[in-house]
Design a protein around this nucleic acid. Structure first.
Ligand SMILES: [Mn+2]
Ligand SMILES: [Mn+2]
Ligand SMILES: [Mn+2]
Ligand SMILES: [Mn+2]
Lengths: 226, 226
DNA sequence: GATAAAATTTAGACTTGTCTAAAAAATGTT
DNA sequence: AACATTTTTTAGACAAGTCTAAATTTTATC
Protein backbone atom coordinates (compact mmCIF):
# COMPACT_ATOMS: atom_id res chain seq x y z
CA UNK A 1 0.00 0.00 0.00
CA UNK A 2 2.22 2.80 -1.23
CA UNK A 3 1.47 5.80 0.97
CA UNK A 4 0.45 8.58 -1.41
CA UNK A 5 3.62 10.60 -2.02
CA UNK A 6 2.83 14.21 -1.27
CA UNK A 7 4.78 16.61 -3.38
CA UNK A 8 6.75 18.87 -1.09
CA UNK A 9 7.69 22.41 -2.09
CA UNK A 10 11.27 23.62 -1.74
CA UNK A 11 10.18 25.68 1.21
CA UNK A 12 8.63 22.70 2.95
CA UNK A 13 11.75 20.65 2.29
CA UNK A 14 13.95 23.39 3.72
CA UNK A 15 11.93 23.53 6.91
CA UNK A 16 12.08 19.74 7.31
CA UNK A 17 15.81 19.74 6.77
CA UNK A 18 16.33 22.56 9.27
CA UNK A 19 14.30 20.81 11.95
CA UNK A 20 16.30 17.63 11.35
CA UNK A 21 19.60 19.50 11.66
CA UNK A 22 18.51 21.30 14.83
CA UNK A 23 17.27 18.07 16.39
CA UNK A 24 20.62 16.30 16.10
CA UNK A 25 20.62 13.02 17.97
CA UNK A 26 18.27 14.25 20.71
CA UNK A 27 14.51 14.00 20.26
CA UNK A 28 13.62 17.14 22.18
CA UNK A 29 11.14 19.30 20.38
CA UNK A 30 12.33 22.31 18.37
CA UNK A 31 11.01 25.72 19.34
CA UNK A 32 9.36 28.12 16.94
CA UNK A 33 11.89 30.88 17.58
CA UNK A 34 14.91 28.63 17.12
CA UNK A 35 13.55 27.46 13.81
CA UNK A 36 12.70 31.02 12.77
CA UNK A 37 16.28 32.11 13.39
CA UNK A 38 17.66 29.12 11.48
CA UNK A 39 15.37 29.81 8.53
CA UNK A 40 16.02 33.56 8.63
CA UNK A 41 12.29 34.19 8.84
CA UNK A 42 9.71 35.32 11.39
CA UNK A 43 8.14 33.22 14.11
CA UNK A 44 4.70 33.82 12.69
CA UNK A 45 5.74 32.36 9.34
CA UNK A 46 7.12 29.33 11.15
CA UNK A 47 3.86 28.79 13.00
CA UNK A 48 1.96 28.77 9.71
CA UNK A 49 4.36 26.28 8.17
CA UNK A 50 4.33 24.00 11.23
CA UNK A 51 0.57 23.75 10.97
CA UNK A 52 0.82 22.75 7.36
CA UNK A 53 3.57 20.18 7.93
CA UNK A 54 1.69 18.73 10.92
CA UNK A 55 -1.37 18.41 8.67
CA UNK A 56 0.78 16.39 6.26
CA UNK A 57 1.99 14.26 9.19
CA UNK A 58 5.64 15.10 8.63
CA UNK A 59 5.89 16.35 12.21
CA UNK A 60 3.93 16.61 15.42
CA UNK A 61 3.16 20.08 16.61
CA UNK A 62 1.60 21.20 19.85
CA UNK A 63 0.76 24.84 20.26
CA UNK A 64 3.39 26.70 22.27
CA UNK A 65 5.40 23.45 22.56
CA UNK A 66 7.39 23.34 19.32
CA UNK A 67 7.61 20.39 16.95
CA UNK A 68 9.24 17.00 16.40
CA UNK A 69 9.65 15.18 13.10
CA UNK A 70 7.66 12.01 12.58
CA UNK A 71 9.30 8.90 11.13
CA UNK A 72 8.12 10.04 7.69
CA UNK A 73 9.46 13.53 8.25
CA UNK A 74 12.83 12.18 9.33
CA UNK A 75 13.00 10.05 6.20
CA UNK A 76 12.27 13.06 4.02
CA UNK A 77 15.01 15.00 5.81
CA UNK A 78 17.54 12.21 5.39
CA UNK A 79 16.77 11.94 1.69
CA UNK A 80 17.43 15.67 1.26
CA UNK A 81 20.68 15.47 3.23
CA UNK A 82 21.71 12.52 1.06
CA UNK A 83 21.09 14.51 -2.09
CA UNK A 84 22.87 17.59 -0.76
CA UNK A 85 26.00 15.66 0.17
CA UNK A 86 26.18 13.55 -2.97
CA UNK A 87 25.90 16.68 -5.12
CA UNK A 88 28.68 18.28 -3.05
CA UNK A 89 30.89 15.28 -3.80
CA UNK A 90 30.08 15.61 -7.48
CA UNK A 91 30.96 19.30 -7.53
CA UNK A 92 34.28 18.79 -5.75
CA UNK A 93 35.40 15.46 -7.22
CA UNK A 94 34.19 15.86 -10.79
CA UNK A 95 33.92 19.59 -11.41
CA UNK A 96 36.92 20.73 -9.34
CA UNK A 97 35.02 23.12 -7.10
CA UNK A 98 36.58 23.99 -3.73
CA UNK A 99 34.85 22.82 -0.55
CA UNK A 100 34.05 26.45 0.18
CA UNK A 101 32.14 26.89 -3.08
CA UNK A 102 29.70 24.01 -3.12
CA UNK A 103 27.19 24.60 -0.37
CA UNK A 104 25.06 27.18 -2.13
CA UNK A 105 24.82 25.19 -5.34
CA UNK A 106 23.99 22.02 -3.42
CA UNK A 107 21.21 23.93 -1.65
CA UNK A 108 19.54 24.17 -5.05
CA UNK A 109 20.42 20.72 -6.37
CA UNK A 110 19.11 18.97 -3.25
CA UNK A 111 15.55 19.76 -4.38
CA UNK A 112 15.75 17.98 -7.73
CA UNK A 113 13.13 15.24 -7.71
CA UNK A 114 14.28 11.91 -9.11
CA UNK A 115 15.23 8.89 -7.04
CA UNK A 116 16.86 7.34 -10.09
CA UNK A 117 19.02 10.38 -10.62
CA UNK A 118 20.46 10.38 -7.13
CA UNK A 119 21.05 6.64 -7.08
CA UNK A 120 22.89 6.76 -10.40
CA UNK A 121 24.87 9.76 -9.26
CA UNK A 122 25.90 7.85 -6.15
CA UNK A 123 27.09 4.96 -8.28
CA UNK A 124 28.89 7.32 -10.69
CA UNK A 125 30.73 8.82 -7.71
CA UNK A 126 31.76 5.37 -6.45
CA UNK A 127 29.47 5.23 -3.40
CA UNK A 128 31.25 7.86 -1.32
CA UNK A 129 30.78 7.54 2.43
CA UNK A 130 31.37 11.19 3.33
CA UNK A 131 30.95 14.56 1.66
CA UNK A 132 33.76 17.10 1.08
CA UNK A 133 33.38 18.38 4.66
CA UNK A 134 33.55 14.92 6.18
CA UNK A 135 29.82 14.63 6.82
CA UNK A 136 28.42 11.10 6.38
CA UNK A 137 26.23 10.27 3.39
CA UNK A 138 23.21 8.08 4.18
CA UNK A 139 22.75 5.08 1.85
CA UNK A 140 19.62 4.61 -0.24
CA UNK A 141 17.84 3.00 2.68
CA UNK A 142 18.50 6.14 4.71
CA UNK A 143 21.02 4.52 7.05
CA UNK A 144 24.25 6.25 8.01
CA UNK A 145 27.03 3.66 7.90
CA UNK A 146 29.06 3.36 11.06
CA UNK A 147 31.42 6.29 10.94
CA UNK A 148 34.32 6.05 13.41
CA UNK A 149 33.84 8.33 16.43
CA UNK A 150 35.19 11.85 15.93
CA UNK A 151 35.99 14.46 18.54
CA UNK A 152 35.83 18.20 18.26
CA UNK A 153 39.36 19.57 18.44
CA UNK A 154 38.26 21.94 21.21
CA UNK A 155 37.41 18.99 23.45
CA UNK A 156 40.82 17.31 23.17
CA UNK A 157 43.71 17.39 25.66
CA UNK A 158 47.17 18.82 25.20
CA UNK A 159 49.30 16.25 23.40
CA UNK A 160 46.44 14.72 21.44
CA UNK A 161 47.38 13.70 17.89
CA UNK A 162 44.83 12.88 15.25
CA UNK A 163 43.63 13.01 11.67
CA UNK A 164 41.17 15.67 10.50
CA UNK A 165 37.99 13.82 9.60
CA UNK A 166 35.51 16.66 9.30
CA UNK A 167 34.92 20.39 9.45
CA UNK A 168 31.81 22.49 9.83
CA UNK A 169 30.47 23.47 6.43
CA UNK A 170 28.47 26.51 7.40
CA UNK A 171 30.56 29.44 6.25
CA UNK A 172 32.68 29.83 3.09
CA UNK A 173 34.96 32.27 4.96
CA UNK A 174 35.83 29.62 7.54
CA UNK A 175 36.58 27.08 4.82
CA UNK A 176 38.68 29.61 2.92
CA UNK A 177 40.68 30.20 6.06
CA UNK A 178 41.33 26.47 6.28
CA UNK A 179 42.51 26.59 2.67
CA UNK A 180 44.89 29.36 3.60
CA UNK A 181 46.53 27.32 6.34
CA UNK A 182 46.38 24.22 4.12
CA UNK A 183 44.25 22.21 6.49
CA UNK A 184 42.35 19.44 4.66
CA UNK A 185 40.52 16.24 5.46
CA UNK A 186 43.31 13.77 6.26
CA UNK A 187 45.71 16.38 7.66
CA UNK A 188 47.67 15.24 10.71
CA UNK A 189 47.09 17.51 13.64
CA UNK A 190 48.58 17.73 17.13
CA UNK A 191 47.60 19.91 20.05
CA UNK A 192 50.88 21.39 21.27
CA UNK A 193 49.45 23.70 23.91
CA UNK A 194 46.30 25.19 25.33
CA UNK A 195 46.33 28.78 26.53
CA UNK A 196 44.16 28.87 29.61
CA UNK A 197 43.43 32.62 29.60
CA UNK A 198 41.49 32.59 26.30
CA UNK A 199 41.04 28.90 25.59
CA UNK A 200 42.98 29.10 22.35
CA UNK A 201 45.09 26.21 21.06
CA UNK A 202 48.57 25.93 19.64
CA UNK A 203 48.34 23.22 16.99
CA UNK A 204 50.70 21.55 14.57
CA UNK A 205 49.14 20.78 11.17
CA UNK A 206 51.21 18.49 8.94
CA UNK A 207 54.30 19.93 10.64
CA UNK A 208 53.26 23.61 10.50
CA UNK A 209 52.54 25.37 13.79
CA UNK A 210 49.61 27.75 14.12
CA UNK A 211 47.08 28.98 16.64
CA UNK A 212 43.31 28.32 16.82
CA UNK A 213 40.73 30.22 18.82
CA UNK A 214 38.44 28.02 20.88
CA UNK A 215 35.58 28.83 18.51
CA UNK A 216 37.56 27.80 15.47
CA UNK A 217 38.81 24.60 17.13
CA UNK A 218 35.20 23.66 17.91
CA UNK A 219 34.49 23.46 14.18
CA UNK A 220 37.18 20.89 13.42
CA UNK A 221 36.69 17.20 14.09
CA UNK A 222 39.48 14.67 14.40
CA UNK A 223 39.94 10.97 14.90
CA UNK A 224 42.56 10.73 17.64
CA UNK A 225 45.53 8.48 16.93
CA UNK A 226 47.15 8.81 20.36
CA UNK B 1 27.75 49.17 -15.86
CA UNK B 2 26.46 45.69 -14.92
CA UNK B 3 22.72 45.72 -15.71
CA UNK B 4 20.99 44.72 -12.48
CA UNK B 5 20.40 40.99 -12.81
CA UNK B 6 16.76 40.37 -11.99
CA UNK B 7 16.14 37.04 -10.36
CA UNK B 8 13.72 35.10 -12.51
CA UNK B 9 11.40 32.53 -11.02
CA UNK B 10 11.13 29.07 -12.55
CA UNK B 11 7.77 30.03 -13.92
CA UNK B 12 9.13 33.13 -15.61
CA UNK B 13 12.01 31.13 -17.06
CA UNK B 14 9.60 28.53 -18.42
CA UNK B 15 7.53 31.17 -20.18
CA UNK B 16 10.62 32.76 -21.73
CA UNK B 17 11.84 29.39 -22.93
CA UNK B 18 8.46 28.53 -24.43
CA UNK B 19 8.24 31.83 -26.30
CA UNK B 20 11.74 31.29 -27.65
CA UNK B 21 10.88 27.77 -28.82
CA UNK B 22 7.63 28.90 -30.46
CA UNK B 23 9.37 31.79 -32.21
CA UNK B 24 11.88 29.58 -33.99
CA UNK B 25 13.85 31.53 -36.56
CA UNK B 26 10.98 33.86 -37.43
CA UNK B 27 10.39 37.04 -35.44
CA UNK B 28 6.62 37.08 -35.70
CA UNK B 29 4.91 37.73 -32.41
CA UNK B 30 3.57 34.83 -30.36
CA UNK B 31 -0.14 34.82 -29.55
CA UNK B 32 -1.54 34.45 -26.08
CA UNK B 33 -3.51 31.34 -26.92
CA UNK B 34 -0.59 29.57 -28.57
CA UNK B 35 1.52 30.22 -25.52
CA UNK B 36 -1.27 29.14 -23.20
CA UNK B 37 -1.53 25.81 -24.99
CA UNK B 38 2.24 25.30 -24.90
CA UNK B 39 2.36 26.07 -21.17
CA UNK B 40 -0.71 23.96 -20.40
CA UNK B 41 -2.33 26.92 -18.73
CA UNK B 42 -5.12 29.43 -19.38
CA UNK B 43 -4.95 32.48 -21.63
CA UNK B 44 -5.74 34.75 -18.70
CA UNK B 45 -2.71 33.47 -16.80
CA UNK B 46 -0.57 34.10 -19.83
CA UNK B 47 -1.78 37.68 -20.11
CA UNK B 48 -0.81 38.33 -16.49
CA UNK B 49 2.64 36.87 -17.02
CA UNK B 50 3.22 38.76 -20.26
CA UNK B 51 2.54 42.03 -18.45
CA UNK B 52 5.10 41.11 -15.83
CA UNK B 53 7.76 40.03 -18.31
CA UNK B 54 7.17 43.15 -20.41
CA UNK B 55 7.64 45.22 -17.25
CA UNK B 56 11.00 43.50 -16.80
CA UNK B 57 11.85 44.24 -20.43
CA UNK B 58 12.32 40.60 -21.35
CA UNK B 59 9.72 40.93 -24.09
CA UNK B 60 7.56 43.48 -25.83
CA UNK B 61 3.87 43.05 -25.43
CA UNK B 62 1.04 44.90 -27.11
CA UNK B 63 -2.47 44.23 -25.96
CA UNK B 64 -4.27 41.80 -28.27
CA UNK B 65 -1.11 41.55 -30.42
CA UNK B 66 0.97 38.91 -28.66
CA UNK B 67 4.61 39.24 -27.64
CA UNK B 68 8.18 39.11 -28.94
CA UNK B 69 11.32 38.49 -26.89
CA UNK B 70 13.75 41.37 -26.52
CA UNK B 71 17.48 40.84 -26.95
CA UNK B 72 17.74 40.32 -23.19
CA UNK B 73 14.84 37.88 -23.22
CA UNK B 74 16.40 35.89 -26.03
CA UNK B 75 19.66 35.70 -24.11
CA UNK B 76 17.86 34.39 -21.05
CA UNK B 77 16.12 31.78 -23.20
CA UNK B 78 19.36 30.65 -24.80
CA UNK B 79 21.03 30.31 -21.43
CA UNK B 80 18.22 28.05 -20.23
CA UNK B 81 18.36 25.96 -23.40
CA UNK B 82 22.12 25.66 -22.93
CA UNK B 83 21.66 24.38 -19.39
CA UNK B 84 18.89 21.99 -20.39
CA UNK B 85 20.94 20.41 -23.16
CA UNK B 86 24.19 20.17 -21.22
CA UNK B 87 22.41 18.45 -18.35
CA UNK B 88 20.84 16.04 -20.84
CA UNK B 89 24.31 15.17 -22.11
CA UNK B 90 25.46 14.60 -18.54
CA UNK B 91 22.55 12.30 -17.79
CA UNK B 92 23.07 10.20 -20.91
CA UNK B 93 26.87 10.18 -21.18
CA UNK B 94 27.79 9.97 -17.51
CA UNK B 95 24.80 8.46 -15.74
CA UNK B 96 23.70 6.07 -18.48
CA UNK B 97 20.16 7.33 -18.80
CA UNK B 98 18.33 6.66 -22.05
CA UNK B 99 17.46 9.58 -24.33
CA UNK B 100 13.81 8.95 -23.50
CA UNK B 101 14.39 9.43 -19.76
CA UNK B 102 16.23 12.73 -19.51
CA UNK B 103 13.85 15.46 -20.53
CA UNK B 104 11.86 15.67 -17.32
CA UNK B 105 14.94 15.72 -15.10
CA UNK B 106 16.59 18.35 -17.31
CA UNK B 107 13.44 20.46 -16.98
CA UNK B 108 14.31 20.76 -13.31
CA UNK B 109 18.08 21.04 -13.63
CA UNK B 110 17.86 23.86 -16.20
CA UNK B 111 16.74 26.22 -13.42
CA UNK B 112 19.81 25.77 -11.21
CA UNK B 113 21.46 29.18 -10.88
CA UNK B 114 25.24 29.17 -11.23
CA UNK B 115 27.13 30.25 -14.31
CA UNK B 116 30.27 28.58 -12.95
CA UNK B 117 28.44 25.29 -12.55
CA UNK B 118 27.29 25.13 -16.13
CA UNK B 119 30.61 26.21 -17.57
CA UNK B 120 32.47 23.59 -15.56
CA UNK B 121 29.90 20.98 -16.49
CA UNK B 122 30.41 21.83 -20.15
CA UNK B 123 34.16 21.37 -19.76
CA UNK B 124 33.68 18.11 -17.82
CA UNK B 125 31.56 16.81 -20.69
CA UNK B 126 34.20 17.77 -23.25
CA UNK B 127 32.37 20.70 -24.85
CA UNK B 128 29.66 18.69 -26.60
CA UNK B 129 28.13 20.38 -29.64
CA UNK B 130 24.77 18.62 -29.57
CA UNK B 131 22.49 17.08 -26.95
CA UNK B 132 21.33 13.43 -26.95
CA UNK B 133 18.54 14.30 -29.39
CA UNK B 134 20.86 16.06 -31.81
CA UNK B 135 19.86 19.58 -30.77
CA UNK B 136 22.69 22.12 -30.84
CA UNK B 137 24.18 23.44 -27.59
CA UNK B 138 24.93 27.17 -27.59
CA UNK B 139 28.39 28.13 -26.32
CA UNK B 140 28.93 30.35 -23.30
CA UNK B 141 28.49 33.45 -25.43
CA UNK B 142 25.09 32.18 -26.49
CA UNK B 143 26.09 31.41 -30.07
CA UNK B 144 25.02 28.22 -31.81
CA UNK B 145 27.99 26.90 -33.76
CA UNK B 146 27.36 26.24 -37.41
CA UNK B 147 25.56 22.96 -37.45
CA UNK B 148 25.39 21.31 -40.90
CA UNK B 149 21.99 21.70 -42.51
CA UNK B 150 19.54 18.95 -41.64
CA UNK B 151 16.34 17.96 -43.41
CA UNK B 152 13.23 16.44 -42.00
CA UNK B 153 12.88 12.90 -43.32
CA UNK B 154 9.35 13.71 -44.43
CA UNK B 155 10.64 16.36 -46.80
CA UNK B 156 13.08 14.05 -48.65
CA UNK B 157 12.66 12.31 -51.99
CA UNK B 158 12.56 8.62 -52.74
CA UNK B 159 16.09 7.31 -52.96
CA UNK B 160 17.55 9.80 -50.47
CA UNK B 161 20.23 8.34 -48.22
CA UNK B 162 21.45 10.06 -45.09
CA UNK B 163 22.65 9.94 -41.50
CA UNK B 164 20.27 10.56 -38.61
CA UNK B 165 21.43 13.79 -36.98
CA UNK B 166 18.48 14.64 -34.77
CA UNK B 167 15.06 13.59 -33.50
CA UNK B 168 12.29 15.49 -31.79
CA UNK B 169 12.62 15.19 -28.03
CA UNK B 170 9.06 15.92 -27.02
CA UNK B 171 7.60 12.56 -26.10
CA UNK B 172 9.25 9.61 -24.31
CA UNK B 173 6.91 7.23 -26.15
CA UNK B 174 8.25 8.37 -29.52
CA UNK B 175 11.85 7.98 -28.34
CA UNK B 176 11.07 4.54 -26.92
CA UNK B 177 9.67 3.55 -30.28
CA UNK B 178 12.94 4.62 -31.87
CA UNK B 179 14.77 2.45 -29.32
CA UNK B 180 12.58 -0.47 -30.33
CA UNK B 181 13.54 -0.17 -33.99
CA UNK B 182 17.15 0.59 -33.01
CA UNK B 183 17.26 3.98 -34.65
CA UNK B 184 19.95 6.18 -33.10
CA UNK B 185 21.85 9.33 -33.92
CA UNK B 186 24.33 8.23 -36.60
CA UNK B 187 22.10 5.52 -38.04
CA UNK B 188 22.21 5.26 -41.83
CA UNK B 189 18.81 5.67 -43.37
CA UNK B 190 17.46 5.37 -46.91
CA UNK B 191 14.03 6.20 -48.25
CA UNK B 192 13.08 3.15 -50.33
CA UNK B 193 9.56 4.21 -51.20
CA UNK B 194 6.80 6.71 -50.50
CA UNK B 195 3.20 5.53 -50.44
CA UNK B 196 1.18 8.29 -52.02
CA UNK B 197 -2.22 7.32 -50.58
CA UNK B 198 -1.21 7.98 -46.94
CA UNK B 199 2.14 9.73 -47.25
CA UNK B 200 3.94 6.99 -45.32
CA UNK B 201 7.52 6.01 -46.08
CA UNK B 202 9.31 2.72 -46.53
CA UNK B 203 12.76 3.25 -45.02
CA UNK B 204 15.87 1.18 -44.53
CA UNK B 205 17.64 1.80 -41.22
CA UNK B 206 21.13 0.33 -40.96
CA UNK B 207 19.94 -2.40 -43.34
CA UNK B 208 16.60 -3.10 -41.63
CA UNK B 209 13.44 -2.22 -43.54
CA UNK B 210 10.49 -0.63 -41.78
CA UNK B 211 7.66 1.79 -42.39
CA UNK B 212 7.15 5.34 -41.07
CA UNK B 213 3.98 7.37 -41.03
CA UNK B 214 4.34 10.88 -42.40
CA UNK B 215 3.95 12.27 -38.87
CA UNK B 216 6.72 10.08 -37.51
CA UNK B 217 9.03 10.87 -40.42
CA UNK B 218 8.57 14.58 -39.76
CA UNK B 219 10.21 14.11 -36.37
CA UNK B 220 13.44 12.66 -37.71
CA UNK B 221 16.18 14.84 -39.17
CA UNK B 222 18.92 13.61 -41.44
CA UNK B 223 21.98 14.92 -43.18
CA UNK B 224 21.63 13.61 -46.75
CA UNK B 225 24.65 11.79 -48.17
CA UNK B 226 23.21 11.26 -51.65
C1' DG C 1 -20.39 47.90 -43.04
C1' DA C 2 -23.00 45.12 -39.86
C1' DT C 3 -22.89 41.03 -37.42
C1' DA C 4 -21.17 36.65 -35.72
C1' DA C 5 -17.27 34.08 -34.01
C1' DA C 6 -12.89 33.78 -32.02
C1' DA C 7 -9.18 35.63 -29.39
C1' DT C 8 -7.78 38.28 -25.62
C1' DT C 9 -8.14 40.93 -21.49
C1' DT C 10 -10.23 42.22 -17.09
C1' DA C 11 -12.43 41.34 -12.65
C1' DG C 12 -12.58 38.81 -8.81
C1' DA C 13 -11.20 34.79 -6.32
C1' DC C 14 -7.99 31.24 -4.27
C1' DT C 15 -3.36 29.17 -2.57
C1' DT C 16 1.32 29.56 -0.87
C1' DG C 17 4.57 31.78 1.67
C1' DT C 18 5.71 35.71 3.68
C1' DC C 19 5.25 40.02 6.75
C1' DT C 20 3.74 43.43 10.84
C1' DA C 21 1.12 44.39 14.75
C1' DA C 22 -1.70 42.83 18.38
C1' DA C 23 -3.35 39.22 21.49
C1' DA C 24 -2.50 35.22 24.24
C1' DA C 25 0.18 31.88 26.67
C1' DA C 26 4.33 30.47 29.02
C1' DT C 27 8.11 31.54 31.86
C1' DG C 28 10.86 34.14 35.23
C1' DT C 29 11.21 37.17 39.37
C1' DT C 30 10.28 39.12 43.47
C1' DA D 1 0.74 34.68 44.08
C1' DA D 2 1.33 38.82 41.25
C1' DC D 3 3.75 41.18 37.95
C1' DA D 4 7.06 41.55 34.11
C1' DT D 5 9.26 39.54 30.30
C1' DT D 6 9.68 36.43 26.67
C1' DT D 7 7.73 33.28 23.47
C1' DT D 8 4.26 32.00 20.49
C1' DT D 9 0.02 32.48 18.06
C1' DT D 10 -3.57 35.04 15.65
C1' DA D 11 -5.38 38.58 12.59
C1' DG D 12 -4.99 40.96 8.62
C1' DA D 13 -2.23 42.20 4.71
C1' DC D 14 0.50 41.46 0.44
C1' DA D 15 2.89 39.39 -3.88
C1' DA D 16 3.12 35.55 -7.12
C1' DG D 17 0.85 32.56 -9.92
C1' DT D 18 -3.10 30.42 -11.04
C1' DC D 19 -8.27 29.85 -12.08
C1' DT D 20 -13.40 30.95 -13.84
C1' DA D 21 -16.61 33.99 -15.70
C1' DA D 22 -17.62 38.22 -17.85
C1' DA D 23 -16.32 42.05 -20.78
C1' DT D 24 -13.81 43.74 -24.67
C1' DT D 25 -11.34 43.74 -28.95
C1' DT D 26 -10.08 41.62 -33.20
C1' DT D 27 -11.09 38.84 -37.18
C1' DA D 28 -14.00 36.54 -40.29
C1' DT D 29 -18.32 36.36 -42.99
C1' DC D 30 -22.18 37.85 -45.21
MN1 LIG E 1 26.63 21.89 2.44
MN1 LIG F 1 28.77 19.39 3.29
MN1 LIG G 1 14.77 17.93 -23.44
MN1 LIG H 1 17.08 17.41 -25.88
Amino acid sequence: MPRSQYHLTQSEENYIKAIFALSGSSDDSISTNLLAERMSTKASSVTDMLKKLAEKELLTYTKYQGCTLTETGRNVAISIVRKHRLWEVFLVDKLQFGWDEVHEIAEQLEHIQSAQLINRLEEFLGFPKVDPHGDPIPNREGKFENIPARSSLSSCEIGTKGIVMGVEDGSPEFLQYLNRIELKLGSEIEIADKLSFDGSLVVIIDGRTTQFSHLLAAKIFIQPTS
